[in-house]
Amino acid sequence: MADPRLFRLRVRFVEQGRLALLSHLEVARALERAVRRAGLPFAVSQGFSPHMRIAFGAALPVGVGSTCELFDVFLTDYVAPAKALAALQEASVDDLRPYECSYVDHSALAASVACPLSAYEAHLSETPERFAFPEVITVVRKKKEKELVVREFLQGEPTMEPLEDGTARLAFRLLAKPSGSLRPDVFLNAALDEMKRTEAFPSDARLLSITRIAQE
């Protein structure tokens, strides 16, 4: 798998604005096309259906933006990171834009599992009296209901900061596990429902945006 002659370029990029609405598959396709447009010497897999050697980070739910996404692309020739970055930026749209390139070792974890811990920031249309969330959230996966214990995913306590315009900023961290993860939008919507139920939050209050701000 790890061909030592190849160079593994890790690219970090933002996904913001309207493009937060892209699905993971759409992001993957768009990035692959950006790599082609940038003219980078990408490696091509051997076999019956040759394709670009590229690997994407953990999926971001539709509607969630990010300042810190990543993908790895394998190159057949060394390109200085600054030069690769400039070429990628030239080939990208503003809201899906690489901001950092660096080489990583072949032994490093795959992009999809390299950063299990994510920090998110959410923007709420109103400031709740207190932030609350249910202990267990039921999600449907592959047509089966599954109960997720929030504390198994949530790292530390969420913090809330009221803003001058009456809205609020919320920060929290979620850990992805090999067995599955709790999506930030699912967590927040469950929290909003819980707060509305206990009247800690007005019933017309809305979630304005969610952004992943760090992955480690």
Binding site: L22, R33, R37, G63
Partner: peptide, 21 residues
């Protein structure tokens, strides 16, 4: 339009901002 997009399928149909080659 934006507030409708999380309720509908394939919101990418409506967002513009594609790459123009």
């Amino acid at each position: 339009i934006e507030p409708l997009l999380l309720r509908v399928e394939k919101p990418t149909r409506y967002i513009d901002h594609e790459f123009l080659a």
